[in-house]
Amino acid sequence: MLKARPCLICRKWFHPDRMVGERQRVCGAPSCQKERHRRACARFHDRDPDYDRHTRFTAKLVQVGAGGKGTVPAEAIDWRYARKVVGLEISALVEESGKVLLRQARDAVLVQLK
């Protein structure tokens, strides 16, 4: 049995779960667990403030249903949306760079098959 300790949220004493052990800092009360989760999320967003913005952007950028087996990877990206967000020059540079890399990868595979 582990030593009892005070919960960091409600300050009531509790015995940590055997599986969690010394790492457990809050009791099992739903309100304390919810507050612990809220604080952990706040710390995460402090460390990486652009995470949500990045996730939304990439979700809009990749077209729904695209990118199945046998498709061209560049067709899985909504280039109109990319141009709207980052501008014509940058999106064109990225798109053409991707095409060059794809051609080089295909050529390398064909050389290896021979």
Rank of each mutant, 00 (worst) to 15 (best):
R23L: 04
L61Y: 02
K69I: 12
Q63L: 15
I90C: 13
R38A: 01
E22T: 11
C7H: 01
G68D: 02
T55I: 10
R5D: 02
E89S: 07
E75I: 10
R18T: 10
D46G: 14
I90H: 12
D52V: 06
R56S: 14
E22Y: 14
E96D: 09
I9P: 02
A74I: 15
R11E: 13
V64E: 13
P16V: 10
G21T: 06
I90Q: 15
P73N: 03
I77N: 01
R23V: 04
R38S: 02
K34G: 09
I77F: 01
R11F: 08
R56W: 11
D17H: 14
F14D: 03
T58V: 11
E35Q: 04
V20R: 15
A74D: 15
A40L: 07
P73G: 03
K60G: 02
C41A: 12
G21R: 05
I77Q: 00
T71D: 12
I90E: 07
D46H: 11
H54A: 14
A74S: 15
G28K: 10
A29Q: 11
D48I: 08
V64Y: 14
S31K: 14
A66Q: 08
V64M: 10
P73L: 02
P16G: 08
H15L: 12
A42H: 04
W13H: 13
S97C: 06
R47H: 10
S91N: 07
P49C: 02
D52Q: 09
H15T: 15
E35P: 04
K84E: 12
L8P: 00
H45G: 00
T58S: 08
Y51N: 00
L8G: 05
W79M: 00
Q24Y: 00
T55E: 12
T58E: 07
R53V: 08
K84W: 14
L8H: 06
D46M: 12
P6C: 02
C7K: 00
P16H: 11
S91H: 06
G67K: 05
R25T: 05
S91A: 11
E95Y: 06
S91M: 06
K34D: 03
A66P: 03
M19E: 10
K12D: 13
C27H: 01
E96M: 07
E75P: 08
A42C: 02
H54T: 12
G87D: 09
K69S: 11
L61D: 01
H15K: 15
R39I: 03
F44G: 00
W13S: 14
Q63G: 12
V62W: 11
E96I: 09
R11N: 13
E95G: 03
R36K: 09
R23F: 04
A74N: 13
K84H: 13
R36L: 03
D17S: 12
K60V: 05
G28H: 06
H54K: 10
C10V: 01
E35R: 03
E96Q: 08
R53F: 07
E35M: 01
R56V: 13
V85G: 00
E35H: 05
V85Y: 06
Y81L: 03
K69T: 14
K12G: 09
K84Y: 11
V72P: 09
G67Q: 09
S97I: 00
Q63S: 15
R38P: 04
R5A: 01
A66L: 07
H15V: 14
